[in-house]
């Protein structure tokens, strides 16, 4: 094989190694972004999900939130202060109403504040799913602005979140 082709292969492998190292040594901003992907994974539901898995996901979901999480939404029932246990219970109940659910985040912007213990983040959340009774829930898109705090265990947790349509009505 020609030398230049070996060079291309070497550069590809080297680039992959650098990418892996960056992922492994991710900074706090990367960890904050991962909270969103983790939240999406835990909300997602496929048809035929077992009760045990649903409960485990609800439990894990609560661990992403701080002890006194504040939500601000257009819906009064979903606004207020919640404990992780309340969030778990809400999530299990809400997910049980759907046979399929998908939450995706796009344009995740994260900024760690001076001091390194708090971060501000914004993202576009897209929720789609199919209710248990049939039909189609459609797709809802909202702008999510939130604050996260780093715990003593090094994990980032959501402290507050505001969901809006993105335009001042």
């Amino acid at each position: 094989m020609k030398r230049w082709l070996w060079t291309v292969v070497f550069l590809g492998v080297a680039a992959g190694g650098v990418w892996w190292a960056v992922q492994a040594l991710a900074g706090d901003e990367q960890k904050v972004r991962r909270c969103f992907s983790r939240l999406g994974e835990l909300i997602d539901k496929r048809e035929g999900e077992s009760l045990i898995l649903a409960a485990a996901r609800g439990q894990a979901l609560g661990n992403l939130f701080s002890d006194d999480f504040e939500a601000r939404t257009e819906v009064a029932d979903l606004s207020g202060h919640f404990t992780p246990e309340e969030i778990s219970a809400h999530a299990v109940r809400a997910r049980s109403r759907f046979s399929r659910l998908e939450l995706r985040f796009a344009d995740v912007q994260a900024r760690v504040l001076p001091g390194g213990r708090e971060a501000e983040a914004a993202a576009v959340a897209t929720l789609s799913g199919r209710p248990q009774g049939g039909g189609d829930f459609g797709t809802e898109t909202r702008l999510l602005r939130c604050r996260l705090r780093k715990g003593d265990d090094g994990h980032w947790r959501f402290v507050d979140a505001e969901l809006s349509q993105g335009l001042a009505r």
């Binding site: 796009a106 344009d107 995740v108 914004a122 993202a123 576009v124 898109t141 335009l167």
Partner: peptide
């Protein structure tokens, strides 16, 4: 096209 958090999802108005 109005940005929300970035330019992957925007509002067309």
């Amino acid at each position: 096209a109005v940005r929300l958090a970035g330019t992957r999802v925007m509002l067309l108005k």
